[in-house]
């Protein structure tokens, strides 16, 4: 019997030892933001039902969202939303069979991070402008 040769085929990446790459982190982050947005939509529905219920209840919910911690959560919600949306545009491009060129993929990943941060901050600047 011949000696069993050790398999040198590529094995599936073990996340604990795999060198993190931007595109891989973006893929994970796209899913993570999607799950986070699930909670964000619960907040949105909470706000809608409060607005439809009574002044007292609406004021309670507005108070929670107006609190510094509430605003921090909403800021995170905004970033997750924008990041998932911009990242989703990449996925829609890939769905057409385009945009798989590796340098372009790297550029799009970086652009998604940059754009999502810029748009999120811009939206909050506009928001604070509207309120004052």
């Amino acid at each position: 019997m011949a000696e069993l040769k050790k398999a040198e085929r590529p094995l599936s990446p073990h996340l604990q030892i795999y060198r993190p790459m931007l595109t891989m982190m973006m893929s994970i982050f796209h899913r993570a933001t999607g799950v986070a947005l699930y909670a964000g939509v619960v907040l949105m529905v909470w706000w809608l039902t409060a607005a439809a219920t009574s002044d007292e209840y609406f004021n309670i919910v507005q108070g929670v969202f107006g609190h510094w911690f509430g605003r921090l959560v909403l800021f995170g919600f905004t970033w997750a939303l924008v990041h998932h949306a911009v990242g989703g545009l990449r996925h829609l491009l890939w769905d057409t069979g385009r945009g798989f060129d590796l340098p372009l993929v790297e550029v799009m990943a970086k652009a998604t991070v940059g754009l999502s941060v810029v748009i999120t901050i811009l939206l909050w600047v506009i928001g604070y402008g509207v309120m004052s």
Partner: peptide, 24 residues
Amino acid sequence: TAISNIPLIIFLIAFVISHLGASR
């Protein structure tokens, strides 16, 4: 739904921002 989300979320963000601090 990803494609329909794009214009609808833009509307939602505009709706929310234009009602910041608004009364019930």
